[in-house]
Simulated assay, not measured.
Amino acid sequence: MITTLDNNTALVLIDLQKGTLNAQLVHPAKGVLANAIKLIDAFRNEGLPVVIVHVNPLGAPWTKTRKQVSMIPADEEGQKAAEAKMQEDGFFTIVPEIVLQPGDLLVTKKTWNAFFETGLHDELQKRNVTGIVLGGVSTSVGVEGTARAASELGYNITLASDATTDRIASAYEHSVHTIFPRISEIDTTDAIIKMLAQRK
C-alpha cells in the first residue's frame, strides 16, 4: 500500500509499444493502457516528469548468449531478418494512445533494465527526482528489471499494479507479491493519483 510520494517523483512506463501490447496478456491491454494514460495525465498536470520507455533488444550482447529459451535469433543474419520483420509490424512503435509531449523523456533500452546504458538515471538526477512510479509490460521482465536497478540506485519506487501486466499469470503474481514488496510500495492507479495531489 502506498504511504507517500516524494515531491520530485517521475512516472516511468515500460514498453507500451505495439509489439508488447499485441501479445497474449494476463490482463486486458485496454485496461492497463487506460490506467497508464490516467497516470500520464496526472503527472503532467502536476508538472512532473513522464518517461516513456520502449525496447529494441536486437544487437545487444545478451541476445547472443546461450540460453534455454530464446525469442530472438542469436546470429547476425537472423537478427537482421528479425529486425526487418519487427519494423514492418511496428513492434517498436509506442502505441498511438500515448502521445509524447514536449518535456516527456523517450528512452530506448536494449535490455530488461531501463537504466542500463540509457542515460535515464542522469536525466532523472538533472530533475532532482528521488522517486519513481512504475507501470508497463511485462511486469516480471522490463518492469521488474527496471525496478531492481532503481532500487540499487536508491530511488523510492511505487508500482501501479493495475497499470502493468505480463504474459504469464504466475510471473505477474510472483513479481507483485514476492519481489516488489521488498523494493517498493504497491497500489492502484487511483490511489497513486490521489497521493500525487497530496504529496506537498
Rank of each mutant, 00 (worst) to 15 (best):
K85M: 11
E144T: 14
H27L: 12
A163Y: 02
N7L: 12
T63C: 08
Q17P: 05
L21S: 04
V50Y: 00
L105P: 07
T139G: 04
T63D: 13
D187Y: 06
D89Q: 10
P96H: 05
G19F: 04
N156M: 04
E83M: 08
F116C: 11
Q24I: 10
R199T: 05
L39C: 01
T20G: 08
V55E: 15
P96I: 05
L25Q: 00
D75K: 06
N128Y: 13
I193Q: 04
T93L: 10
L39G: 00
G31S: 09
M1A: 13
I37T: 01
T178E: 14
I72F: 13
N35F: 01
E152Y: 09
E46L: 07
P61D: 06
A191Q: 12
S175N: 07
E76L: 15
T165G: 03
A147G: 13
T118G: 05
L153P: 08
N35A: 00
L124E: 09
N56I: 04
A34M: 02
E123D: 14
F43N: 04
V51I: 10
L153Y: 12
Q79C: 05
V141A: 14
A23Y: 13
T108K: 12
Q87T: 14
D89M: 12
E97Q: 06
G103I: 00
V26L: 07
P57T: 00
G31V: 09
E144P: 10
E46M: 07
H174D: 11
D162Y: 03
L58V: 13
I52Q: 02
A84I: 10
L124H: 10
F180D: 01
I193V: 11
R148T: 12
T118R: 07
T111V: 15
A197H: 15
Q125P: 00
T63S: 08
N113W: 08
T165Q: 06
E77D: 15
N22W: 09
H54V: 06
S161A: 14
D187H: 03
D15N: 06
E97V: 06
L16K: 05
A150C: 04
V107P: 11
A42N: 07
N22K: 14
Q79F: 10
T20E: 10
W112K: 15
F115R: 05
T3A: 11
T188K: 02
A36G: 03
L196H: 03
V51M: 01
N56V: 07
L16H: 03
I2H: 02
I179W: 00
T188P: 03
R127V: 05
V55H: 15
K64M: 13
K109W: 10
V129R: 14
A191W: 01
T3V: 13
G131L: 09
V12A: 01
A147F: 07
K200Y: 08
G78S: 07
K126T: 05
G131E: 03
L100Q: 13
Q101H: 05
N128E: 15
P102E: 06
T4P: 08
K64F: 05
L33F: 01
E185K: 11
A42S: 07
I183W: 04
E46G: 07
S184N: 01
Q198P: 12
T3S: 12
D41A: 15
H177C: 05
E76S: 14
S140R: 10
A160R: 01
N113I: 08
T3W: 11
L106M: 12
L120V: 10
F115N: 09
S138L: 15
G59L: 00
N22P: 02
G136R: 03
L11Y: 00
A84T: 06
I40W: 00
P73N: 11
E97D: 14
F43S: 01
L13Q: 02
T111R: 15
